[in-house]
Design a protein around this nucleic acid. Structure first.
Lengths: 195, 195
DNA sequence: GACCGTACCAAGCGCTTGCTTGTTTGGGCT
DNA sequence: AGCCCAAACAAGCAAGCGCTTGGTACGGTC
């Protein structure tokens, strides 16, 4: 029994993440989480300090993974166009690896951010933005990206399109995540007009 | 006093909308709404049947406005490129007219949709989608839109980029909403690559 | 000046929330 | 066999929830 205790913890986190993603953090009760796992609500507190602690663990591991992948993209010696593509790929891979955490972050940042414990979310958002801006501005400087569009606005439009795919994208054999990444890159870089 | 009763109702709705948008519907309490208006929570029920009724009224008027504007766009005898632009403009105008309602819809559809009363939200989403698809498919048929990108995926990417602008866009004199509409249209149609 | 209806207050009901507490269970180790 | 201790249960607490109720203040109408 004791040797499976890690399993239980993970199962609780997985159930909690799914519920948080589908119903929202505030609308999910600890009793619902416990029901999903098949224990009583009080027993959750043997594994976690609080409901907030569960959210925290889910979101933190999500952001850690994201940061790691972005750093890898920026460490490579590549041109802006490739980097933009690689950022999109990295983001979509994170969406695939942490679908629930992504949805929680997208839906509930506003709510979470006003809880003291989650103040760090402000910095996380800024970090991500500056990574994208670095690439876009390098692109403008090198003359491969249009300079009549504000990079910040470009970033926000792309960001929402890419991250919100978590709400609708379910990878299949015919349309895997790599294909979505290609289509995103192609849409943003070349547009949907036939030429 | 009686002659200003409509005012009160509107003030309650406005306060409720702002709170729902910022904290989420589930995380906003009737006491908070009442505090904002300066009355006690019980007094809200003189003006509204329930908390759900407030949400309903906010969301319904938002969707009504959206439907009206989309119909106007589709009624005009214009080419696909213009129509796409006009749909973007119409959407951003609705964002501007109903910022809180837009945010509530974007953040809380998942939560609301599972409440019986808000079942109609399913149809609303489908209606909007089919309007965009109609335009995109006409564009493909007329050879002005690339046919190597799935229209449904195009729609979803554009939809999230456009609607989620409610979270960050604050119109100014230098960058009004019309400019954002132009930039969106330009990004989606032509891409961000310099050519 | 008696009456009416609107708008609100004061109090609190029944229920659910996140969380705590004291106790029981049962496999692993000596 | 005897003990240990992680893991779960059973019960329930205080706080907060949406909402209801009975009463009051007061401008408008006849």
């Amino acid at each position: 029994m004791a040797r499976e205790s890690g399993d239980r913890r993970e199962r609780i986190l997985a159930s909690a993440a799914a519920l948080f993603a589908n119903k929202g953090v505030a609308a999910t009760t600890v009793r619902e989480i416990a029901d999903e796992v098949g224990i009583l609500s009080g027993s959750l507190y043997h594994h976690f300090e609080s409901k907030e602690a569960m959210v925290d663990e889910i979101v933190t591991s999500y952001l850690d993974d994201l940061r790691t992948r972005y750093k890898r993209v920026m460490a490579a010696d590549t041109d802006p166009r490739t980097r933009l593509h690689d950022l999109i790929v990295a983001s979509l891979e994170v969406v695939e690896a942490h679908p629930h955490a992504t949805e929680i972050y997208q839906n509930d940042v506003n709510y979470l951010i006003q809880i003291e414990r989650f103040g760090y979310l402000r910095n996380a958002g800024k970090e991500v933005q500056s990574t994208w801006l670095e690439v876009l501005e390098a692109g403008i400087a090198q003359g491969v990206v249009r300079e009549d569009l504000d990079p910040k606005i470009l970033y926000r439009l792309m960001r929402d399109a890419v991250w919100l795919s978590v709400r609708w994208f379910k990878p299949t054999a015919e349309y895997p995540i790599t294909r979505l990444a290609e289509d995103c890159t192609s849409l943003f870089l070349d547009g949907l007009s036939r030429r």
